[in-house]
């Protein structure tokens, strides 16, 4: 699993590649811990994530709680069918703003969210 972080306009985009499980999720947690910077929003693009277990769900839940506490906007984008299904089974879909693509999430944030 790798996480690539880029800045585009008002958003920090974190692109996750590979498998997010109990082995790799601590690294994802660390990679996201200081994101986004002050006044920025965060897009977590999962189009390269081919697997997500409950360990990954815990990272996402922690991120959503932090977004609310710190007041930044969070978008998830690019969920493949397997990852989307895990979020659905866990009842996570209502907790997140989920967009089809990184580009659509970015356009929305650039337009003022």
């Amino acid at each position: 699993m790798t996480t690539e972080v880029v800045q585009q306009g008002p958003a920090i985009i974190a692109r996750v590649q590979g498998r997010v499980d109990a082995y790799t999720s601590p690294a994802l947690d660390v990679a996201l811990a200081t994101l986004p910077g002050a006044g920025q929003h965060l897009i977590l693009d999962l189009s390269g994530a081919d697997y997500l277990s409950s360990a990954g769900l815990r990272v996402l839940l922690g991120l959503a709680k932090r977004a609310r506490a710190e007041g930044f906007q969070l978008r998830l984008s690019g969920l493949g069918p397997a990852v989307a299904e895990v979020l659905e089974i866990a009842g996570f879909v209502p907790l997140f703003e989920i967009r089809d693509t990184e580009a659509s999430a970015l356009a929305e944030l650039a337009a003022g969210g």
Binding site: L57, L61, K65, R68, G91
Partner: peptide, 19 residues
């Protein structure tokens, strides 16, 4: 794990057995 609950009531844990 309070599936269906709002964000503030979600606990981080219990998801594995639930799945």
């Amino acid at each position: 794990p309070l599936v269906g609950a709002p964000l503030e009531k979600r606990r981080i844990g219990g998801l594995g057995v639930y799945l």
